[in-house]
Nucleic acid binder design. Structure first.
Lengths: 309, 309
DNA sequence: CCCGTGACCCAAGCACAGCTTGGGTCTGCT
DNA sequence: AGCAGACCCAAGCTGTGCTTGGGTCACGGG
């Protein structure tokens, strides 16, 4: 950079080349003539070349001057292009958003949100990665995602270094039973009423919601089978191998006609949120994506969570 | 220009992008960290975009920052290219010289000079235009030629607004006679001895040399035919239609074996010069061309004109 | 575990770059 | 001949932009 020509002088010189005289260039720049003359003189000193031939009608460029003016014009064009590109980013005519979302969100409202976003800002490059909340948070922290749709349970505290989180809506947990199960004719129940059942749960890492909820009701669930897949879960339930807890969203994504679901009294719902990296101001594209997700999930918001938002 | 981003800040930003941190960029630039930080901050204010995410390990570019850095790198490259192009011009690896020269010069030493120049500086773009001195001076004044090879006669004063002229050599005038002419057995003669001859001369505009020289000797030449072409002149002479004055250079370019030439006593030679536009410092390429022409015509220089140079 | 290192930020000060002012000269046109 | 419109030079002043000297926050090693 030290050995580079001063680019501001180049711009001044480009104006001189365009105007054909120092005085005209000065007027175009809103300066006085000596100001421009000083720039040109300095440029000639720096380059060691005579750049202009001064005559009584203004100046004419030497070959060196013409060469320099060409480069100067290219720089001007670049500066314009830089501004234009930044405008495109802020106006959402360009830009990228990398979304991460958990499976049942990906299977339900997220595609609608992306469609809405593409409609609002067709120039955006939107990319979705399916990821469970833990993985999604890793992606955000590593800078491999801009925005994540995550969930958490009230009773399971999150990591201490919590990224910025905006609640989207509450996703109530439902008890999933085979049709014809003794509990299946109730409209809702306490979790404790299912204490003696056999359970289908998620992998050891993902079953904490069930085990902590059960522990608070004073029992240890008898977990016989484990899967993180909500389709598999329902198949196992419908086959009579056990009962399960599933969030409403999962059942909305895929519903086995052979199972019955009933509500749970005094049972905390799964909370679905928007998570973004901590302390990073969202880009216009990311903000637009967040808006689209909030708008699409608006109907799901309960009065309580609406007040929070 | 007013609405353009400050290109110097762009260069600073390019360095930040390259270094990955403000402090490292500052070190690379030989500055302190706040200096760089101020530039980046100002750039963010000017663009209205967040360009970098500050974290404890340095900074990472946002999408807008990456876009800007790309343009900044392009500008850096342009500045380098500008310098390189100017160096090429001063080092004679590039550049253009437009030469103008009168016909007999074009037919004799000028091609050799161009060849010498091309050998010394193969990158130069050398262009030759054949032009009589008057036309050549017009080309110089109009900026359509950089250097001219011209001639003039001592007794014919030039235009008052005389461009810069470097004498090259003296080109003696010879009397051209048909073989077997009464004067043909002399080695030299006075012009007055040919006062009663029939003459071949140039066009009315070009015959002034003959008429003024004759007038100073007290006679008016009997001009029967006129041509500016030295080949035609010799053909007319050899056919016996008249005698003529021709410069040595013209006879060197093309010599009709049927004519005899004899020297003239006390007759001013034609002076061949290098002419360049007044008050314009010659470009490196033009200076090199002038050198080549001077070097090539060195052997022609008489002791007197050598002293002048 | 705590401290050191190395990022970052902020505010204030100071120097010089760079623009203006106010002279002057030289063409070229009216 | 005089004026207009180029250019140049020198001196002065303003404001940009770099430095100095503070402080905070994370991460990593003794």
């Amino acid at each position: 950079m030290r050995d580079l020509l001063d680019p501001r002088r180049m711009l001044v010189f480009a104006e001189v080349a365009r105007s054909g005289s120092l005085a005209a260039a000065a007027q175009a720049l809103g300066w006085t003539q000596p100001a421009v003359a000083q720039h040109v003189k300095r440029l000639e000193r720096d380059t060691g070349c005579t750049l202009v031939i001064r005559n009584s009608r203004g100046v004419t460029l030497t070959e060196a001057g013409q060469s320099l003016a060409t480069h100067a014009d290219a720089i001007t064009a670049r500066l314009r292009a830089a501004r234009a590109d930044l405008s495109a980013l802020t106006d959402l005519r360009a830009g990228q958003v990398r979304l991460a979302a958990f499976p049942s969100a990906c299977a339900t409202f997220v595609p609608a949100a992306i469609a809405l976003l593409q409609e609002r800002a067709p120039g955006l490059d939107v990319r979705l990665t399916e990821a469970e909340p833990g993985e999604a948070r890793r992606l955000l922290a590593a800078g491999d995602a801009d925005l994540a749709v995550t969930f958490d349970y009230d009773n399971v505290p999150d990591t201490p270094a919590e990224p910025a989180r905006t609640p989207l809506f509450d996703d109530p947990m439902l008890l999933v039973l085979p049709s014809g199960h003794p509990l299946a004719d109730r409209t809702d129940t306490d979790l404790a009423d299912a204490a003696d059942q056999r359970w289908i749960a998620g992998c050891p890492r993902c079953r904490t919601h069930l085990t902590t909820a059960a522990a608070s009701q004073g029992f240890l669930p008898d977990i016989r089978h484990s899967t993180d897949d909500y389709v598999v879960t329902q198949t196992l339930v419908s086959t009579g191998l056990g009962i399960a807890l599933l969030p409403t969203l999962a059942l909305e994504a895929a519903r086995d006609p052979q199972v019955t679901t009933i509500g749970l009294r005094r049972h905390a719902p799964r909370r679905v949120s928007l998570t973004s990296p901590a302390d990073i101001p969202p880009s216009p594209a990311t903000a637009a994506a967040a808006s689209a997700l909030i708008d699409v999930t608006g109907p799901r918001r309960t009065a309580k969570s609406k007040a929070e938002v």
